[in-house]
Design a binder for these strands. Structure first.
Lengths: 192, 192
DNA sequence: TTCTGTCAATTGAATGTTCATTCGGTTGCA
DNA sequence: TGCAACCGAATGAACATTCAATTGACAGAA
């Protein structure tokens, strides 16, 4: 039964991701979400109290998926510099292959929904996410230059996100060798 | 008369920027835009054929302002490396001081509006903007490593945008010294 | 096994609200 | 007098949400 529930929810999530990617939050009325997910409008309200709740739950759902794909267990024990590169490449490759997820997250972060999430201090602390910790760890273990984490985060993720954006805009995936070039630049810039 | 027209338009633009920043495209109905701009709803339609047109014109308007503030005449003749740093810092400082503009552009780029703009090949070419050219120039003049412009763009602008985002989220401006650190890292990473 | 009561899951038409857009009329300037 | 700028109530479409009705699964009684 609980599995059923999850499946239906995921069906709705997937439909929403697809629509938001294609037409923004604008172009995603409940009626379309329902049709795409092959459920009745009313059913969505069986799972989510409101559209806003649906969106916010979808955010947490995406976040979980992303983290799962970025921090791979088999890479947990690599030396820091190799892990630094691996995680970074995971980010780019995952987003490149999951356009709708990327597009949703981008829009979400720019929307007032996210404002609400950040306001909640407790969640905010949970929210300081794995990448943040990963960089802090690099600082503590003296792998990274002694910079403010904020700066490290910008230097690490900023280029990745820009790259994914340009890849999606131009509908051309980025060559692996180019990824290596860029992550090398970043690593050389922030390594101790 | 033409000046009048521009003034009214700007009033509407400013109002829209403010609302979009506060509540996203969602939370910006024409009625609110009108009230905030202190004009009647109908008047907006005197200047713009539709809400979509308003948004798209606003995009071009923002783009112009941004370019004006990023490429300062008095810095045009600096040696490339200094100009590289100056332009980059202009980006961060300008966006930091113009939250609503930044927020609008971010949301616009993630929206289907921008898709339409990119589709139009002619505009697309105009669109390849000044920063793009600036980096190409750096390549031609052998100041920069021989990387794909796409990679350079990601390495240059990505961190800037990330930084601004975090600055706006945390409502804390970034210290000038931190900016210098970051732009140094970038420059060292891409310089020949 | 068959029947029955229960409740969650599901449906989509109906409701009320919000919104973009229109338009008939007013103002003010040339 | 004419015309552009301006107004905001009126219109109709799109939308989120509700709800009364239907289905389906299943536990326990016969």
């Amino acid at each position: 039964m609980n599995i059923q529930l999850t499946e239906k929810k995921e069906q709705i999530f997937r439909s929403t991701l697809q629509l938001v990617n294609a037409g923004g939050f604008h172009g995603s009325p409940m009626s379309k979400i329902a049709k795409e997910a092959e459920v009745a409008v009313g059913s969505i309200y069986h799972y989510f109290p409101s559209k806003d709740d649906l969106i916010i739950e979808l955010y947490w759902y995406c976040k979980e998926i992303i983290n799962k794909h970025i921090f791979l267990e088999e890479q947990d024990n690599l030396p820091y510099d190799q892990r630094f590169r691996a995680v970074w490449k995971n980010v780019v490759l995952f987003y490149q292959d999951h356009e709708d997820l990327f597009s949703f997250m981008e829009q979400f972060y720019g929307s007032p929904f996210y404002e609400d999430i950040r306001k909640n201090v407790f969640q905010h602390k949970c929210e300081r996410n794995k990448i943040f910790h990963f960089l802090e760890q690099g600082l503590e273990e003296k792998h990274l230059k002694d910079l403010h984490v904020r700066i490290l985060l910008a230097a690490y993720l900023g280029p990745a996100i820009s790259l994914v954006r340009s890849s999606l805009y131009e509908k051309t995936k980025i060559e692996e060798s180019q990824l290596d070039q860029l992550v090398d630049i970043i690593w050389n810039g922030v390594k101790k």
